[in-house]
Design a protein around this nucleic acid. Structure first.
Lengths: 234, 234
DNA sequence: GTATCGAGTGAACGCTGTTCACTTTATGAA
DNA sequence: TTCATAAAGTGAACAGCGTTCACTCGATAC
């Protein structure tokens, strides 16, 4: 046995992480196709040929297990957007691709995305995300995704295509909200992009591009309509 | 007993609708404060001093009961936005107020809004809204709210402040998505408007106004950045 | 006065997440 | 090799859930 065994895995550890992986895999499979309601501990146990209580040797609760699925999903989402934002394509293509990729990744795994923004499971009365300070938040996957957006707005401003008077943080939040909204609507209403009286419709990805375009249009110019002080009553 | 009793209510009917109202009221109260998870048939029964099975004399299922809460909420949401859009304020104020009102109404009743766009309860595997044709959809509260948005875009175009080349339906969907996204984020992350490294933050309603402003900026001008054919790969 | 219908009930079914005392198995030390 | 210890795995049970159903009982209609 080597002296430095901190990196080596004992057979027991290997066995353990194998079972743990099997649980996660089964959970991922069931969750992706049937969502939070279809995923029960008992069903999961059946699927991996263990007893229900065995799961609790690996995860403290169902919530903990699902949190891991969500976190993995968000990591994937982040890495995709990160990759797009790291390409050397022209800014306007890159920016739009980030938004499109975000939305399309969400639509690919609707249950994951919905769960990541839902408090359906926890017993808390409202907040999904615990209160955390700025530094802590920026180390989470959500935080880093948000950071990418802020950088993007700044880049657009430094390139002279975005209104320089805009606050990058506020603008990033606005872009995030707009992206999130479309992802959510497409997730929950698959026929959403087709919502139209005529038959001439855009495909889902075309509509995503349209939306991304419109979002970025808003950042490009100072307002033409008179700007109002939101605190003033008309 | 009057001959025309179709409008009169017999004592039995009055009693029945009283109990039904009590159920709805209790459900509304619990749901508003604790959401779908806090609302159980047994708890509801306890709250109105009836047995759990009594509820089923008034509602076919828990889902049916919650659907009624959601529908009432959406009716309220629609009537609010409808009222705003009917005022004679200048267009740019009216339009922004519609979006702000939509978002603020959602934030007021976060559980209702979340539930209205979640399939957490039903046993269906994905779609919240059943497939329906355009005419049917436009008679629902959601459809009518959407119709208001389409009209708003058209009005903006006829006033010459919105880009006339935009498709009103696509644009309305985009605006809806952007509004929905902010409502959802503020609902699930109350500190969302404060997400910022500095201490100088906008209040929630100020940020809503900022967002609405940015959304409408996008509609006001033709794109300056080169427009891309979304189907073309770079 | 009596038949009828509907409101209301309590027990039960099958499901859920979770716990706990228990057995079995693998491992490190003597 | 033997033995103690820790970990893995189990089955029964608990409390809660939505829902059903046979049942009682009181108000209503004839």
């Amino acid at each position: 046995m080597p002296s430095d065994m901190s990196l080596e895995q004992t057979p027991a550890e290997r066995r353990r992480s194998k079972v743990r992986g099997a649980i996660i895999d089964a959970a991922e499979r069931v969750f992706a196709s049937e969502g939070e309601n279809g995923l029960s501990i008992r069903r999961l146990a059946e699927e991996i040929d263990y007893s229900p209580s065995a799961i609790y040797k690996y995860f403290g609760s169902k919530e903990e297990l699902i949190d891991e699925l969500k976190e993995a999903f968000f990591k994937r989402l982040l890495s995709r957007v990160d990759m797009i934002s790291g390409t050397d394509r022209p800014f306007h293509l890159r920016a739009r691709a980030c938004v499109s990729t975000y939305i399309e990744t969400a639509v690919e795994r609707p249950h994951h995305y919905a769960a990541a923004f839902s408090n359906a499971y926890g017993s808390n009365t409202g907040n999904v995300w615990p209160d955390m300070d700025w530094e802590t938040f920026m180390q989470t996957n959500k935080g880093r995704a948000f950071g990418l957006l802020v950088d993007m707005v700044r880049e657009g401003q430094s390139l002279g295509v975005f209104d320089p008077s805009l606050d990058p943080y506020l603008s990033a939040k606005s872009v995030w909200a707009a992206s999130h909204g479309l992802a959510q609507l497409m997730t929950h209403l698959p026929q959403f992009p087709d919502l139209r009286p005529t038959n001439t419709c855009l495909s889902a990805s075309e509509f995503v591009a349209f939306h991304a375009d419109l979002v970025f249009r808003g950042l490009q110019h100072p307002a033409v309509l008179p700007h109002t002080d939101p605190t003033a009553q008309d």
